Simulated assay, not measured.
Amino acid sequence: MTKIAMIAPTTLDDYLSTLFQQQLSDNAIKYERDITETVGIGAFDNDKLVGGVLMTRRYDHLYIARLAIDKAYRGQQLGTKLIDAAEAWARERQVLNITLSTRDYQAVGFYEKCGFKRYGKVVDLPFAGVTTVYFVKRLLD
C-alpha cells in the first residue's frame, strides 16, 4: 500500500532527478551539458564586497535568484554592471532566457530599464500587501 510521508529534501531531489532524466530519455531528448550550476558575481570596492548577483543556470535557462547592492554604493551603476556581467556569462553558455522576480517596492523600474519584460505578477506574495512581479529577457533566438 502506498503512503505519503516527509522525506529529506536531498534524498527526494536525487530520486526526482532520475525520473526527469528518464523522461528526457523516453522522449529522445539529448542534453549534453551539466544540467544545473549556481554562480555568483560580486561587486567590490577594492577587496570589500558591496553587492552581487546570485543565479542558477538550469539547462538553457538562467534564473537570477538575488541581486542587491549595499545602500552606500547605490546610484553608481553597480546593479547595471552586475546584470551586464550576468548576461555576458549567460551568452557565453548559449542561455536562451533569463528570468527573475522582484517585489513591487524593490527594483521593478530597474529591471525594465535593463530590458526585462514583465510576464506576470502575484498580489500578496510573499505576504499580504506585497506584490511579486515576474520578468523575462530573451537572449538568443
Rank of each mutant, 00 (worst) to 15 (best):
T2Y: 14
K3F: 13
L12R: 10
L12T: 10
D14R: 08
D14I: 10
Y15T: 05
Y15W: 09
T18G: 00
F20G: 12
Q21L: 01
Q22N: 08
Q23N: 06
Q23R: 06
L24N: 05
I29L: 15
R33A: 12
I41R: 00
G42M: 12
F44E: 12
D45Y: 15
N46I: 06
N46T: 08
N46G: 07
D47N: 08
L49K: 04
L54N: 03
R58D: 13
Y59F: 15
H61N: 01
L62D: 00
Y63R: 05
Y63T: 05
I64N: 02
A65N: 10
A65G: 08
R66T: 12
R66G: 11
L67H: 11
Y73S: 09
T80K: 02
K81H: 06
K81M: 14
L82Q: 01
A85E: 03
A88E: 14
A88Q: 12
W89R: 00
R93Q: 06
V95Q: 01
I98F: 09
L100D: 09
T102L: 05
T102F: 02
D104N: 10
F110W: 08
Y111K: 00
E112M: 02
F116S: 08
R118E: 15
V122Q: 09
V122E: 07
D124A: 03
V130N: 02
T131E: 12
Y134K: 11
K137S: 07
R138D: 09
R138L: 08
L139T: 00
L140V: 07
L140C: 07
